[in-house]
């Protein structure tokens, strides 16, 4: 008996404990090795699949590395101008209140250029889900400083490290958002270990269930890595994130009403 036939005996429906969700398309991903976006996409796609809401869900992708998110998850998508995803989602949700509407935004998109749109969508309590991927840098444009860049962090536009006197302070926008009465569920998660991914998935499920119950806006920050922008290997990036980002961006749920 050859090894292949032996494997084929093992791979059968009875033994299947895990498979890629059908919602995750087979298009080749453009993300760099070690990037967190791929895992987050997978988790979102799995939850949409498990809740059986594929035909009721509209995603809004941002400008940034995840601009092409619509190539990977098999749902209807709108591609927003830089920072404006919450405005698109607001209209979409109000015009089709029975649908599940989410935005998927990076830290440059959400915390910098789109600061007004996210704050006001949160404050109005739009019945949407916001995924905020924070890797403390602008990835797509080549690793420039974001509002979320840590003090002392080297980026293309802070080549000597972020200096608060020159570049301003690091922004914890999730804490600001948790203060707004329109938000019902605000949590900060990560995706660097299987355990973290399982926790993230629970949070994503809860957020979409809040949409079902018309509870208002659910906001999930995911602290992630940018190996290319940070100029580190994927493994080093996870270590750097744990050492530098987790103490500042503390994981956990800020609000759950």
């Amino acid at each position: 008996m050859t090894a292949t036939t032996e494997i084929n005996k093992i791979i059968n429906e009875d033994n299947l404990v895990y498979k890629k969700t059908n919602l995750l398309l087979d298009n080749e991903m453009h993300y760099c090795p070690g990037c967190t976006h791929g895992v987050i996409h997978k988790v979102i796609a799995e939850v949409i699949d498990e809740m059986d809401i594929q035909n009721e869900t509209i995603g809004v992708s941002p400008v940034g590395c995840s601009v092409l998110a619509y190539n990977y998850i098999d749902i209807d998508w709108q591609e927003a101008a830089h920072g404006r995803a919450p405005a698109l989602a607001t209209a979409t949700s109000r015009l089709m209140p029975e649908k599940y509407v989410f935005t998927y935004q990076g830290d440059g998109d959400l915390a910098s250029i789109g600061c007004a749109e996210i704050i006001h969508a949160c404050n109005r309590g739009e019945n949407i889900v916001v995924f905020f991927v924070n890797n403390a840098i602008y990835g797509m444009t080549g690793g420039q400083m974001a509002p979320t860049t840590l003090e002392g962090q080297v980026t293309a536009t802070t080549p000597y490290g972020r200096n608060t006197a020159l570049n301003g302070h690091t922004m914890k926008i999730t804490e600001m958002i948790a203060l707004l009465p329109g938000t019902r569920y605000v949590t900060r998660q990560s995706a660097e270990t299987p355990a973290a991914v399982r926790k993230l998935k629970k949070a994503v499920r809860k957020a979409f269930e809040n949409t079902t119950e018309k509870k208002g806006l659910s906001f999930i920050e995911i602290v992630g890595t940018c190996s290319s922008g940070w100029k580190l290997t994927p493994t080093q990036s996870n270590e750097w994130m744990k050492e530098n980002m987790f103490p500042f961006y503390q994981l956990g749920t800020l609000k759950d009403e």
Partner: peptide, 26 residues
């Protein structure tokens, strides 16, 4: 009909984009 006062003209036109994307008259 939905009527919404946006936080800015920028937000308003992007709400138009979102609504128009749904095939609605916006």
């Amino acid at each position: 009909m939905v009527v919404l006062q946006a936080e800015s003209e920028v937000a308003a036109i992007n709400m138009v984009y979102g609504g128009a994307s749904c095939g609605k008259k916006i």
